[in-house]
Design a protein around this nucleic acid. Sequence first.
DNA 1: CCGTAAACGAGACGGTACGTCCTGTCTTCTA
DNA 2: TAGAAGACAGGACGTACCGTCTCGTTTACGG
Lengths: 194, 194, 194, 194
Amino acid sequence: MGRPRDPALDGAILDAAQALLEEAGCSGFTMEGVASRAGTGKQTLYRRWPSRGELLIDLYYRDPMPPPPLDGPLAAALDGFLELNLQRLYHPWHQNLLRSLAVAAQEDAALKAVMLARITRPRLELGRAIFRRAEAAGEVPAGLDAEPILEGAIGAIWFRLLFTEEPVTPALKPRLLRAMLAQARGPAPGKGTG
Amino acid sequence: MGRPRDPALDGAILDAAQALLEEAGCSGFTMEGVASRAGTGKQTLYRRWPSRGELLIDLYYRDPMPPPPLDGPLAAALDGFLELNLQRLYHPWHQNLLRSLAVAAQEDAALKAVMLARITRPRLELGRAIFRRAEAAGEVPAGLDAEPILEGAIGAIWFRLLFTEEPVTPALKPRLLRAMLAQARGPAPGKGTG
Amino acid sequence: MGRPRDPALDGAILDAAQALLEEAGCSGFTMEGVASRAGTGKQTLYRRWPSRGELLIDLYYRDPMPPPPLDGPLAAALDGFLELNLQRLYHPWHQNLLRSLAVAAQEDAALKAVMLARITRPRLELGRAIFRRAEAAGEVPAGLDAEPILEGAIGAIWFRLLFTEEPVTPALKPRLLRAMLAQARGPAPGKGTG
Amino acid sequence: MGRPRDPALDGAILDAAQALLEEAGCSGFTMEGVASRAGTGKQTLYRRWPSRGELLIDLYYRDPMPPPPLDGPLAAALDGFLELNLQRLYHPWHQNLLRSLAVAAQEDAALKAVMLARITRPRLELGRAIFRRAEAAGEVPAGLDAEPILEGAIGAIWFRLLFTEEPVTPALKPRLLRAMLAQARGPAPGKGTG
DNA sequence: CCGTAAACGAGACGGTACGTCCTGTCTTCTA
DNA sequence: TAGAAGACAGGACGTACCGTCTCGTTTACGG
């Protein structure tokens, strides 16, 4: 019943949000700013997204990256995995998006859960799948603890983004890949923790 | 010249800030709240710390952790390094502190620089020193790229803290240590990047 | 367009302002106080009145006095004129209102202009009209300089209110009326300026 | 005992206060501003004057006007009386001084009393003396109510100063003098209150 | 001539109000 | 009912003064 939601608005609002994110950065990203830039009322925003954070999440999901091939050799799969995590960060506005998401998640437990469910967990799960397959293929030692490898790789990217002034560039990928593979080989026979 | 700042106030304010951080969490940590809880005027806060973030940094530096022993074997040094990064996180209020710092750094470029100079960079440098010494001692291959190892370890901790619901417990340390050592062994002869 | 301002709030805010003026007096009359007493946000105040002074002016205009009859004999008209200027002052809160207005006008040139246009000038003009009519009716000498008579009467009231501890009572009216009429009779033949 | 107050400071502070009053006007006249402009500490101000208002009063009394001759004919005495009230107002900074005094008196009952005792009452008393003498000399009717005449004259000046944009010029004097004399002649035989 | 006590500059201090900004909810009018 | 517009209560921001206080330094005076 009643007037249906204007589907074109979703895009227009997300466009406005993206532009604002690019220009005003992390702290300048306000609901009021998005509304005025999109030429909509605030209610129209809140009708679609219950909070600033959910809008950010939808912004994140807007142009989904193609998932990496899971069926190649481990190195190729991990390369895809890293590409998936890095690619968006090559554009400044997307860096601001992720930074804003990180901020929002700290201030709102509900959003943290959403972000975990819709972004973090799926990504981790994908990484786990890669390692499960590699284990089955005998590419990595049986019983390998993949968790630190994944958290280390994703964490290193976040670390760069949030706390470092060095940009996130494609040059980061091979270094991370090497690090992941080094761990994937499992405990070396020679030098140990001793 | 003029009346010197009351040194007792620094402590009282930091106490209040810490208590507020514990109770109200990341988003409830306001300058107004700290002032009222400390029983001071807001000006007294701003006189000491130009922004919320700088206060957080001083809060961070309040009880410094003892630096790890640099002269033992690599594994021991890295264990100390991880302990240094993890120990504070065992207390909930300190988790909130670091979360708040992460948030503040995103919203204020100046603070990000300060945090980089006073927290992030020193910590990284300490890690680098460990690896330099290990390299000199022949514990790790010459020319080892230590950066991803350090960023991976620190990043993994931040990742847990900021995006995960799983707590940061002492149990995390051995897993991270194993991961660091796996990378430290350098390029294994067998399976390579292909 | 948009949601219209709640007309009931205007009254509620003015009520609160009036009460505050009565209790806290001239210096205790703050925007914050009015807002909290009215149960509104400060913005709601500033949306309606750009400054404390404009609020005071609206408070002044709230219950307008009936204008004096202009068509009777001079003495009756002047009596009405004085009544118009005095009546409000019989209530303490209104005294505080006028005192506050006087203060605000000194601190804000813009408000001074508003007060001149909306209160002072109309009142003077009304007095001038009385004398113009009296002149036409032959009740006062032609070419009488009415200005000092009006300014003297109004000024004497303000003087009492602002600088004297003696209250402004109805007893003041006949004395002021006599003074105005004495001047209205024009230059006496006998004793002159010499 | 102890170090005596530096007498030169009184003058320096009053100079600074005067300059600030001229430049910053009524609302910009703060104790902090005076202190910084005079190059003194705030305590030095408060040691001499318990409040902003008392400082203003001393500023008022700095260059006392010579009192009018009381022994001439009524018109001359009243001319002197008016001159005494008007003269200071010919200089802009003194206008600001009086405006500030008026403001301060509304906000601080204690100051109002001081101002009444040291400025208002003496001035009124001087006017009353003039009329008492004139009554004794037979220049005015016996039992003349001088109060409204004095309050009207002084009030008219304050009125101009506080609420009008028209400047207080020497041209005001003869008009006020005429008004005072008109009332001084007492009840005219011809037209009455009716 | 030397101690003492107050004056002095400087500025910290608790407090109060300022005027602005943003939040998320609400209410109106116009499709 | 959606949508643009914008009012609304609430809360924090960072700033400005208030009048009091505490420093270190300076300067008279009284023993």
